[in-house]
Design a protein around this nucleic acid. Structure first.
Length: 156
DNA sequence: GCCAACGTTGGC
DNA sequence: GCCAACGTTGGC
C-alpha cells in the first residue's frame, strides 16, 4: 500500500463534502504529473491525506482512501464543465482520475504551519518551496506523523 | 488582493 | 527546440 496527499479547496469540495458523499471521483485534475500518479501508481486501498488549500487555515483535514481503479474523468467531455477539454477524445481520454472514499475527518485541521514546524516532516513534498502539485506521494513515516499530529490535536 | 513559483502555449 | 508571455496555484 502507498500513501498520498490530495489537495482540494474546501469552498469547492471539503472533507465534510466527502463525508456526505462517501465516495467521489477526483475530477478536474489537469496536470500531467498529478494525472500520472492517479493513472499509474494509486491503487485501491491506498490511504490519502485530504488537504484543504486556500483555506483558513490551510492544512490536512482528514483521511480518504482510493476506492477504485483509474477511469476517464467525465468532465473532460462535458462542454458545460469548466474542466472541458476539447482536445481529448473519448477513444483516448487524456485525463484519468481515481475515485476516493471517506475514511475520517479530523476534529481539527492540522495547519500547514504545524506541519512546517515539525522537523520529522522536513522532507515532505508539500512543504517544499514552490510546489503546487495537487496529487503527491507521501512516505509512510510522514503519513503516520501527520496522523499523530491530528490525534494530538483532538479536542477532548 | 498580492505576488512568487510554476506549467503550458505558441511564435519563431 | 528555445523562450517569452500568459494563466494558474496557493500561501499570506
Amino acid at each position: 500500500m502507498n500513501t498520498w496527499l490530495m489537495k482540494s479547496e474546501p469552498d469547492v469540495f471539503s472533507i465534510d463534502d466527502l463525508k456526505r458523499a462517501k465516495t467521489t471521483g477526483w475530477e478536474g485534475v489537469r496536470n500531467y504529473q498529478a494525472r500520472n500518479f492517479m493513472r499509474d501508481e494509486m491503487k485501491p486501498g491506498d490511504l490519502v491525506l485530504f488537504y484543504h488549500s486556500n483555506a483558513e487555515p490551510s492544512g490536512v483535514a482528514g483521511v480518504a482512501k482510493v476506492a477504485g481503479p483509474p477511469i476517464p474523468d467525465p468532465t473532460q467531455f462535458d462542454k458545460k464543465s469548466e474542466y472541458y477539454d476539447a482536445s481529448s477524445k473519448p477513444v483516448a481520454p487524456t485525463w484519468l482520475m481515481v475515485t476516493v472514499s471517506f475514511v475520517e475527518a479530523f476534529d481539527a485541521v492540522v495547519p500547514l504551519a504545524t506541519l512546517k514546524a515539525e522537523k520529522a516532516l522536513a522532507g515532505m513534498a508539500l512543504l517544499q518551496k514552490g510546489q503546487r502539485l495537487s496529487v503527491q506521494p507521501v512516505s509512510r513515516a510522514h503519513f503516520a506523523k501527520v496522523l499523530s499530529l491530528a490525534k494530538a490535536n483532538t479536542k477532548v
